[in-house]
Design a protein around this nucleic acid. Sequence first.
DNA 1: TGTCCGCGGGTGT
DNA 2: ACACCCGCGGACA
Length: 110
Amino acid sequence: MEKHNLIQKNLFFGLTNFQWQVLATTVKIPLGETRSYKWVAQQIGNPKAVRAVGQALRRNPFPVIIPCHRVIKSDGSLGGYAGGPSKKKKELLDLEQRIVQGVKKFKIKN
DNA sequence: TGTCCGCGGGTGT
DNA sequence: ACACCCGCGGACA
């Protein structure tokens, strides 16, 4: 896309409004939890745009910062993962589970 | 399980 | 304007 078009369409970091909505929703998913593509679509008020959500996450320009691996299918299976084989996606989710357990275990009383 | 179809947004032409 | 691609969802067998 041309530079002047980016300016005209108000694209921040070259991302569309829709993509920002998806990323902004995804980044709020708590550590150790998951949500479905459908859930994300509903959050941004576009419940039928589930496939578009997947496309947006696939092109997530901020890996690690935006936890796209926490978004899975509504039937509980993993769905795709752009950061490598979907095995990696599961490993990340397992890791986060253990982190949460660790945080609970060693929580400091205040 | 597997298959099939509808779906909305992004991209290229 | 058009065609095509998708990290999906739901229905049905």
